[in-house]
Design a protein around this nucleic acid. Structure first.
Lengths: 330, 330
DNA sequence: CTGTTAGCGCTTTCAA
DNA sequence: TTGAAAGCGCTAACAG
């Protein structure tokens, strides 16, 4: 088994010094004929530079860490997709890690990132994360938070959650619903907290009581939902805080075999592929995921390149309401 | 800005040699009091070992590459999720790359993997991939193919596509449908090819003509579908080859505002969250994704560890038919 | 423009 | 069991 060729091998074959090869590789000017000989040698040997060695020497790994709750949530898989493409364009590879909504697991993954010396991190922080924990875990490494705001001291790209929830609640109110219930899996998650605040505020302004249907996991949430639906104090309308929750609501409708008319009016956060195809078509607040991820990667790479912005930047993008039928529109 | 601490720093503070620190870190026996002093020093300095340096020295990076068409397809996002968890358990990080169904892009990503010196790769090969291309791009690096079979010389974990398609076609036949059409986006993709074969075979056995509805992208596919649906030679039933295609079919139904009764009977590959919630509930061939990914990671890590299996192993798992209503069942 | 040399942080002989 | 020293493949400084 022959070893992988190194710069030295290339250098020898091309009759130049190793540093000339290195220069050529990095696009620094080299004499034309040396360039040709080097290129030939590289082709002949099938040489591929070793990123780990380069990283060690230069202190930059050309990798970025992406830490999210799970990839299987459509919002995040879309996000990862976008981040990967952007990173790829800039010559960086993505190290993908998940924290499964666990603060402890997140700590482990931050340490992982640290060991791998990623140049920067895009993070959807687990509930309970603090700026201090995170920046202590990654001293000197740029981090941008997505989806969940934790501190104005940290670069963040998020939805304007309060506003969006306000808009959503007002819309439901305009349809004449009074007993509007929020449905959420884990209210301690930052984005959901803000959505809840926007809702509470709007309900308060209208002298209406707030309602919360909540459970730590989707199994229990479905149970909570079905019991609520059959109780005599059932709400007028539902405001779902995430696509997963929306699906759980749909499942609960289905479980009770509620007809289209018996279903509660529903408005949900996050758009998804089949949202327009369920019955009735789902009204949602869509997140501008593409834009968000572009902002996030831009911010991150600016930080990595070390130029420009010094103070933390929080980018909050408006949600886009898409009223189909489920909210009561026609 | 103080530099990151190194083994040497730890060694000095603990009054031992660097190699002793290294040994301790890797769990090799060290005298008890040295161990204590080292641990203290590590904690005090906030030392984290540098994977890039270790990788350079030792020749193993503790990373695995995962190359898939896109993360945003539910099948793959689920797969990535599973792989990440498994890799994490084994102390490896995942480098995530996508090839967008482009052979050229796949080549680029294979080269990326090579530069980063990943210890192994899990790959869903783009259409047109050959064993030779792939192993030439990654000499000495274990690769396991998932979802798409390209050669029995390469470790692979796939669905028993022909059988599954046979079962699906027979099921549709049993409902009395004769003009069964396959719907597929890119027939050149290995798994779809095999599904097509299973279908052709079954139709042939029953002296029935084969029908194909196909278009290179989902936009055009939807168009092809709607025109087919309104033509007088419309099929009796549809066999969809992937979850994305199934969604496109649903979209086409919706576009034509076909009522539940007017919709064509449909059986699709891949189960997904909302499959049971659309109207009528979707019948599908489910892939045992979890099992598949466990096999894939097992295979890969066995190869990486260098022990055991020498000859390539192809694992083909049966699909699980789930008959809801869309296929004509009730 | 080029080659020589040193060294990034780690592990691994090798001798003690 | 331990420490000193060499070296993984690369790049940056420096002298030509």
């Amino acid at each position: 088994m022959k070893k992988r060729p190194t710069v030295t091998d290339v250098a020898k074959l091309a009759n130049v010094g190793a540093s000339t090869v290195s220069r050529h590789l990095r696009g620094v000017s080299v004499s034309p004929d040396a360039a040709i000989r080097i290129s030939e040698a590289i082709a002949q040997l099938g040489y591929h530079p070793d990123e780990t060695a380069r990283a060690l020497r230069v202190g930059r790994t050309r990798t970025i860490g992406v830490i999210i709750p799970q990839v299987s949530n459509m919002f995040y898989s879309r996000a990862v997709q976008l981040i990967e493409e952007e990173a790829s364009k800039r010559g960086c590879a993505v190290i993908l890690l998940t924290h499964q909504e666990s603060l402890k697991q997140q700590g482990i993954q931050l340490a992982t990132i640290r060991r791998y010396r990623a140049d920067g991190v895009i993070l959807a922080p687990a509930a309970g994360s603090t700026l201090e924990d995170i920046s202590a875990a990654l001293p000197g490494t740029p981090v941008v938070a997505i989806d969940r705001f934790i501190s104005s001291e940290m670069d963040s790209v998020v939805l304007r959650n309060r506003d969006a929830a306000r808009v959503a609640t007002e819309h439901l109110l305009r349809h004449g619903y009074k007993r509007i219930a929020c449905v959420v899996s884990r209210p301690e998650i930052a984005s959901f907290k803000q959505r809840w605040e926007g809702y509470v505020e709007t309900m308060g302004l209208n002298h209406l009581e707030t309602l919360l249907i909540q459970a730590p996991n989707h199994e229990q949430l479905r149970y909570a939902l079905t019991s609520t639906f059959v109780s005599h104090s059932r709400p007028d309308a539902l405001l779902s805080f995430s696509n997963r929750v929306t699906q759980t609501i749909l499942l609960a409708f289905d479980e009770l075999a509620l007809s289209r008319e018996e279903r509660l009016p529903l408005l949900g956060f996050d758009d998804f592929d089949l949202a327009s195809l369920v019955d009735p078509p789902l009204s949602v607040i869509r997140q501008p995921t593409e834009n968000m991820m572009r902002h996030a990667t831009d911010l991150l790479f600016r930080r990595i390149e070390g130029s420009e912005p010094v103070e933390p930047k929080v980018i909050a993008l408006p949600g886009q309401p898409i009223y189909r039928k489920s909210c009561g529109c026609s």
